[in-house]
Design a protein around this nucleic acid. Sequence first.
DNA 1: ATGTCAATTGACACAGTGTCAAGTAAATCA
DNA 2: TGATTTACTTGACACTGTGTCAATTGACAT
Lengths: 195, 195
Amino acid sequence: MSSKEKNTRTKILEATWQLMVERRGMGVRMGDIAKLAGVSRQAIYLHFDTRTDLMSATAIHVDVVLGLDERLSAVLDAPTAQQALKAYVDVWGNYVPEIYGLAKALLIARETDEAAAVAWDERMACLRDGCVGIIAELIREDRLAPEWSESEAVDMFWTTLSFQTWEQLTVGCGWSIAQYTRWMEIVLIRAFVKA
Amino acid sequence: MSSKEKNTRTKILEATWQLMVERRGMGVRMGDIAKLAGVSRQAIYLHFDTRTDLMSATAIHVDVVLGLDERLSAVLDAPTAQQALKAYVDVWGNYVPEIYGLAKALLIARETDEAAAVAWDERMACLRDGCVGIIAELIREDRLAPEWSESEAVDMFWTTLSFQTWEQLTVGCGWSIAQYTRWMEIVLIRAFVKA
DNA sequence: ATGTCAATTGACACAGTGTCAAGTAAATCA
DNA sequence: TGATTTACTTGACACTGTGTCAATTGACAT
């Protein structure tokens, strides 16, 4: 029962992913996805209620395939908080290009669609978890700069690392990933690590 | 000839502004704007080619009325670069709420619309100008942290100050404007000002 | 053979933008 | 005064993309 269903469903998810990446999230219509997946447009609606539902599902599918959670949480094994911070920036900076188109689409849909907002927030919550871990470790090592409260530090850390910031620096300012990670590490360490 | 035209045009711009602020940029249709302005929907198209054209024009209108350019550039008269930086963050942090809805709409339209992209980029270029001024002044005072190149410092400063960062911290994390300005100043000074 | 299930096909409703043509009402100019 | 121009109105319509619906096909299972 589920093997054939899963095949079509997966074909749709993969097609969505591919198109979202190719077109950087723009101008991807249900018909285009159906065509690439080799199914009828209506077949998509047999598996997903709405376009946004499909986007959320694709985001989750991609996250599972690429394993962001593991990549990010593995980082927390670093010997010191400062090293964990650097590794974290590295993992994130190199991960974003792989999800750019899809993330962008979800971010736009987020403004008008409750389901998209939830899907996006879930993805970003996992990024935040890592920030919480790093700030907590900094506190444990007594290396957090003293003015910060834990929650404010997490908020600022998470925001500084955000998808939008990554986008503005790389796409907007033309930075390489190496530039992004280098300067991001400097800024974050100066902001949060006691001198 | 131009007095009546300007009246209607202005009525449309003001209505657009009001609705965009009220609804935080969401679900504002041409018909809604026309209704509030007290003109027919088609009258709008006599003054503006497309919805995006209207949004750009409104953005410019608002900028003129509120005088962002002056507010931002006045700041550069501060006695030291560090004081200018603080004043700059203050002006910007308090300005954003006044333009939030419109800026948001323009930012979303930016992704699919060339004219919107241009309008947005123009608005943000004016923010960037101020960043350039402050970094230049830091260099003149020999207070810029030594690792930074001028252009990279400007990119990072500008990005850290961006609309999206403001939005994530205030709307997303629930920060007050005071919190935003306080922590933003700390982060920026640590990142860019030599110790 | 019969029922069920996934998928196809084509038609359609709906929302919102933008277009078009005909008409109105007031100001301008002769 | 009457003719023209200008700004605007009115209502109809084309277009795009999403989501719905009903009738149909083909395969597989019992």
